[in-house]
Amino acid sequence: MCSPEDEGIDRLADAIDDLADAAPDALTPEELSARIAGLWSIVEALDPEIARRRVRYGTPRNRE
């Protein structure tokens, strides 16, 4: 029997494989964004700490 974490990792691996298998021209920018957002959702469910820190990834750093 698989743990919920194992199932989440399997879902993540499948989603990554599906994205990698898509032809470069097959996805619109919106579809690509939606798939990447879906990947992040799976990752965040696996590790809530990443969800908390992810907010900072979209914020430009002050490079001074």
Rank of each mutant, 00 (worst) to 15 (best):
A37Q: 12
R35A: 09
C2V: 09
P4F: 04
S41G: 14
P29A: 02
A45F: 05
T28D: 05
D14E: 15
E64Q: 14
R61D: 07
E49W: 12
P4T: 04
L27P: 01
I9R: 07
S33W: 13
A26I: 10
G8P: 00
I16H: 08
A26N: 09
A26Q: 09
T28I: 07
A15W: 01
R56P: 05
R56E: 12
R56V: 07
A37R: 14
E5P: 03
A15K: 02
D6Q: 14
C2F: 13
E49Y: 11
I50F: 10
L19P: 02
M1Y: 12
S3D: 06
N62C: 08
R52A: 13
M1C: 04
A13K: 11
P60Q: 00
D14A: 12
D47T: 07
L19V: 05
V43E: 02
P29S: 02
A34T: 12
M1N: 06
P48E: 01
L46W: 01
A23S: 10
D14R: 14
S33I: 15
V43C: 03
L39S: 03
E64V: 15
A51R: 03
I50D: 02
E49N: 11
G58A: 03
E44L: 10
E49K: 15
V43L: 06
D10L: 10
I42Y: 00
D21G: 14
R53H: 07
A34M: 06
I16M: 12
L12R: 04
R54L: 04
R52E: 07
E5A: 15
A45D: 05
I50H: 10
A13H: 15
C2P: 13
A23N: 08
E44H: 14
R61N: 10
R54K: 10
L27H: 01
I9C: 02
E30F: 15
A23P: 07
L46D: 00
M1S: 11
N62H: 08
V43H: 06
D14G: 10
D18F: 15
V55C: 06
R61W: 08
I9M: 05
R53Y: 06
V55L: 08
G58D: 01
A45I: 04
R53W: 07
A26S: 14
D21R: 14
R11I: 03
A45Q: 07
L27W: 04
A51M: 04
D25N: 13
M1T: 06
D47R: 08
L46S: 01
P60A: 00
P24S: 03
D10N: 11
T59L: 06
R35P: 04
I42G: 00
R35V: 05
I42W: 00
R11N: 07
E5V: 11
E30K: 11
T28L: 06
A22W: 14
Y57Q: 09
L12S: 02
D47M: 06
A13F: 10
A13Y: 13
R54I: 03
D21L: 14
I36W: 05
E64R: 14
I9E: 00
S33G: 12
